[in-house]
């Protein structure tokens, strides 16, 4: 993981007087969390492979405010939102892609009313478009061919925004054997991280949500749990550890699966 990635920033683009086709919103998890950074790098490799003219905000990026809003701090959310919108509008951003469903939901649904109107896509939707438009081809030598994989729907991609198919289409493109958990799509169980739970201890109960969800996944006998959210990734990884299955079951983001399959 030491090779240097080509990652232009919006500031550099502006200095060069050009407008990239899409802004990659990395998000706090994708920027700082060691596990999520691997997803970020995998997605950038795909973008570079498909010769997508993208840029990131880099050190100018700041929390979307999603987690503050869901914790009830509307002031902090709107402070973040309004300053982010000011920045995005100054860069004349039109198209945003993000690998975080929480950022995706907030940018897409909650920013417009505050003055931020962008075409926002989740990375699985963006990659599906790249394939559809023949800008990216998934070669048929995938090392994942026939592998038993289950997909955990992130709440903020699925129920929140009705996107259930883009991630599944990508998995099918990889030639994997996609197996569904008993609770999938609109009845998918949350991983337990949403609504600011990621940042606090759970309330008293008889089980942790991520363990219950991991049990759903283990029931499918899949060797890989695919996700499309850095928080789900952490929760499922912890859940698999709690069930002591980390040797036989791995958790990967769909971007990682594609990047690995293509030897990127």
């Amino acid at each position: 993981m030491s090779e240097l990635l080509k990652v232009p920033t919006m500031a550099e683009c502006m200095a060069e007087g050009r407008q990239p086709e899409v802004l990659f919103w990395v998000g706090a998890a994708g920027s700082y969390d060691d596990r999520a950074k691997k997803i970020t790098r995998a997605f950038v490799k795909i973008l570079n492979k498909a010769k997508v003219d993208f840029a990131v905000l880099g050190t100018e990026e700041s929390s979307t405010g999603d987690v503050a809003k869901r914790a009830g701090n509307e002031f902090l959310f709107q402070m973040q939102a309004l300053s982010n919108i000011e920045l995005l509008n100054a860069y004349q951003v039109k198209h945003i892609v993000t690998a975080c469903p929480h950022s995706y939901n907030t940018l897409k649904n909650e920013y417009p009313e505050l003055g931020g109107h962008y075409n926002v896509q989740h990375h699985t939707q963006f990659i599906a478009d790249l394939i559809k438009n023949k800008r990216l081809t998934i070669e048929d030598n995938s090392n994942l061919k026939g592998k038993r994989i289950t997909f955990h729907d992130p709440c903020y991609l699925g129920r929140a925004n009705n996107e259930y198919e883009a991630p599944r289409t990508l998995l099918k493109n990889l030639g994997v054997e996609l197996v569904e958990m008993k609770r999938n799509r609109r009845t998918a169980l949350c991983c337990g991280a949403g609504g600011a739970q990621m940042f606090k201890e759970p309330e008293k109960g008889d089980k942790d949500i991520n363990v219950l969800r991991t049990e759903d996944a283990l029931e499918t006998q899949a060797s890989i749990i695919a996700t499309g959210c850095p928080f789900c990734n952490t929760m499922m990884t912890d859940g698999v550890k709690a069930k002591e299955k980390e040797a036989s079951v791995k958790i990967y983001d769909i971007a990682e699966l594609i990047a690995n399959a293509q030897n990127l």
Binding site: M1, S2, L4, L5, V7, T9, V26, A28, G30, S31, Y32, D33, K37, T40, R41, V44, V56, G58, T59, E61, S62, S63, G65, V67, A68, L76, M79, Q80, M198, F199
Partner: peptide, 22 residues
């Protein structure tokens, strides 16, 4: 943390792009 450094974790905002070279 969000108020101070724009992320829910206590990391420096100047380190936001470090993933690129790790």
């Amino acid at each position: 943390n969000i108020e101070n450094n724009g992320a829910p974790w206590p990391y420096n905002q100047m380190d936001r792009l470090n993933w690129k070279d790790e």
